[in-house]
Amino acid sequence: MKSTLNQKLKSWPVWMLMGILAVALLAVGASRQSGPLTQEDRIDNITQRLACPTCDGESVYVSQAPASQNIRNEVARQVASGQRTDDEVVAFIGSSFGGQVLLVPRATGLDALIWVLPVAVLVCCAAGLALTFRRWKREQGGQASDADRALVAQLLELDTHNTDTL
């Protein structure tokens, strides 16, 4: 009795139901609005996309250098005026302080490589793994010889209680 209940519970339809529930919940969560961003939150978001011009590889958000403080103040002014979106503020700061303060590499020219290469490597690795599995599958075609069977039988006799996971 218990086993049939268990079986029913864990059947495909129940799993489907679970999947639909998960997707629905995720959709709800992903589409609902987060609380309003304060100006300071916006400043944080924008300064994370800008590089400190005088320090080595830190963002304005992280850096405590005076040059970063200047950029921060400018960002704060822009945000306070409320006229530009985050992207526009980033572009504005980029044009007034020089392109070097923009942090994330652009997706054009040589810079695009940094986005393309990871995907390419992932595809290559996955393809390589898939090919290996195919090769392994082919190799499995080999027939067991009588000697192999005898060896297996002998080992099984030695270890009778071997109930492996499958």
Binding site: Q48, S59, V62, Q100, L103, P105
Partner: peptide
Amino acid sequence: ALQNRQLIVGELF
């Protein structure tokens, strides 16, 4: 090395 241009990769990447 290729374009003699400074670039910083940010945390967002």
